[in-house]
């Protein structure tokens, strides 16, 4: 018997319905295609309010758009904005920062989310309480969360007081103002903020595992590690795919925490693509260059989107 681990695949739970008679099949299939019409309102809505801005962004990225020319016809300049951005020397280090940042946020976000989900999958008061706290954090605006961590990580902050208090180090750790730590610190705080969402989703996946499965495993003498390795992780595998995509996208566009905690500093050491794009467009008023930097992010994610869409389709076709 196949243990249906949770809800991981509708078709898996309901094997191909025997009732699909060949007689009605063709007609049904044609009717099914019509269902695409249901996506029409969303298509039109997004066409006007999302694709139009996206197209403007793309057009802006290849035009000379500054505060002076924003509200006039834009002059086409080809790849000048991309070249200019690269020539200023900030693009490539920023790209490196972004990749490091996305990797840290994605890995900690996913591993931390899964770990939290496993820890909180027991139904007791402490778990519910911690989960409540995590949702509270997830709902708070980044300016609040970022400010709080700026305080906690400061020289006189709680964390440094504890570290120096117990004698781990002599001096305060320069979490946010040393280029070796700053990016890491901001990335970790960002991960901290995304863990609650991931934990909620993972936890729901774990709760979906039938209790009998666990009990059977326990009778066989499986250790907790074996449970995690052979039952929980396979059960949440499909969840992981979409969470990875959502977390990567989140990390790629995350900007608020950097803005609040370091403003890209010290120097330019915590500049990431979205922050650089903000600086170019809204501090330097070079909208074209800012758009070009944003387009680079979108293109990077486009690759991801293609991989995701294909793998979803492949998996659904197989199931």
């Amino acid at each position: 018997m196949s243990t249906d681990l949770t809800v991981s695949g509708p078709a898996r739970r309901t094997p191909a319905p025997p009732g699909r008679a060949p007689r009605s099949g063709a007609r049904w299939h044609a009717a099914k295609r019509k269902r695409l019409a249901f996506a029409l309102p969303a298509g039109i809505f997004l066409l006007v309010f999302s694709f139009f801005p996206l197209a403007q962004l793309a057009r802006m990225s290849v035009s000379d758009v500054t505060a002076r020319t924003l509200n006039q016809p834009w002059e086409f300049v080809g790849v000048d904005n991309f070249v200019g951005s690269a020539a200023q020397g900030s693009l490539f280090p920023t790209l490196g920062n972004t990749i490091a940042f996305v990797l840290i946020v994605t890995i900690i976000g996913l591993v931390g989310g899964l770990a939290a989900a496993i820890l909180l999958s027991t139904s007791n008061l402490l778990s519910a309480f911690v989960l409540g706290l995590m949702v509270f954090i997830w709902a708070l605006p980044p300016v609040v969360n970022g400010s709080v961590w700026k305080f906690l990580l400061g020289d006189a902050g709680l964390i440094n007081s504890v570290i120096t208090g117990v004698g781990l180090t002599q001096d305060a750790v320069p979490f946010l103002y040393d280029d070796r730590f700053a990016l890491l610190s901001v990335a970790i705080v960002n991960s901290w903020a995304v863990v609650p969402f991931n934990a909620l989703v993972f936890r729901a996946g774990i709760l979906g595992i039938p209790a009998e499965t666990f009990e059977a495993a326990r009778i066989d003498g499986a250790s907790r590690w074996q449970e995690i390795r052979y039952m929980i992780i396979p059960a949440v595998r499909p969840t992981t795919l979409v969470l990875a995509v959502l977390t990567i996208v989140y990390a790629f566009r995350s900007f608020d925490f950097i803005f609040v905690m370091t403003y890209g500093g010290p120097g330019v050491s915590t500049n990431t693509l979205p922050f650089l794009s903000y600086l170019q467009a809204f501090v330097r008023f070079d909208f074209g260059m800012g758009a070009a930097t944003a387009v680079i992010s979108v293109l990077l994610v486009l690759v991801l989107a293609v991989i995701y869409a294909r793998s979803v389709r492949a998996e659904e076709a197989n199931s």
Binding site: R35, S50, V249, P274, V301, L304
Partner: peptide, 26 residues
Amino acid sequence: GLARVDSRITTIGLGLLIVLQMVPQT
């Protein structure tokens, strides 16, 4: 609609939705 139709359009639609997720709000 996207759940019920398996076609290239679905794939493209899903990909586009992720791209739209990615566009900076600013």
